[in-house]
Write a protein that binds this DNA or RNA. Sequence first.
DNA 1: GTAGGTAGTGTTATGTAATAACATACTAGG
DNA 2: CCTAGTATGTTATTACATAACACTACCTAC
Lengths: 144, 144
Amino acid sequence: MHDLIRQAEALCQRSGMAFTAPRRRVLEILAASETPMKAYDLISKAGEGGQATKPPTVYRALDFLCQLGLVHRIEQDATFVACNHAGHSHPMALFVCNTCLKATEVAYDEVAPILEKAAEMQGFHLTRLVVEGRGQCQDCALAA
Amino acid sequence: MHDLIRQAEALCQRSGMAFTAPRRRVLEILAASETPMKAYDLISKAGEGGQATKPPTVYRALDFLCQLGLVHRIEQDATFVACNHAGHSHPMALFVCNTCLKATEVAYDEVAPILEKAAEMQGFHLTRLVVEGRGQCQDCALAA
DNA sequence: GTAGGTAGTGTTATGTAATAACATACTAGG
DNA sequence: CCTAGTATGTTATTACATAACACTACCTAC
Ligand SMILES: [Zn+2]
Ligand SMILES: [Zn+2]
Ligand SMILES: [Zn+2]
Ligand SMILES: [Zn+2]
């Protein structure tokens, strides 16, 4: 869990970016969370000593972390989740369990080319791809 | 363009649902729009005589139309677009052009099984899949 | 017909997500 | 020092979405 913070520090250093206090706090909270979090849940915890802070503080940190690939935004429900493949930029899908709400990250190198081809057939050139799913995770399936 | 309305009427009749005035107005506006629309743009036009109406009126109509597959919601930017393959329910992706903002709908029967398999390998059982893209459409590529 | 259920709408108010705009602080480079 | 670049703090506002309740239309059972 603290691995992620160390990786983030290293990644920032390499790319000459500052891993500042608000960025660290937001990433720490996300890394400690079992499930993806809403921005306003972060806002209510990301201040000094776990106090609330202001929306722009958190949104700026989230933008930064998303750009570095340390955090992913789940578009379906506007939540944010720490990435457990720190700094990767290969195509990946996020599957969220409807029961426990945990997110599973899955690589899909195989799929991107197919979608790109399907798009190109209509003359469309892809620059960004969002793949998200909903369903039931293994733990919840076994528990049922 | 009015085809869509007739198809919607038929679809509703078949499934015993009411194609009521607000639902019709929302679908008409979306069908007439070149690009996906924000909910509040609809709200400001969907009332009697093109006047504004109240949010719940429009959101309820949108929920209804989305469930029937007559409208799709684009999660990335919370916009809504009329479906030009009325009432289909096969897997499809929406690609939005960054330049002209038009949405292109693409079927991808090929891809869903791969993603399902990738998910199952992690024990995850998919019930819903969202595939969205961004990029440049053919027209804009040629114009550039 | 009339009571009760279902489906849909109208309306008010509120909750939730995100950003604009501007002021302030820190930190190199000349 | 001074200033350009980067980031944060703060206030206010905009944008997106739903809760809750009253009311109407319609259908069906008794
Ligand atoms: Zn990741
Ligand atoms: Zn689960
Ligand atoms: Zn469609
Ligand atoms: Zn275009």
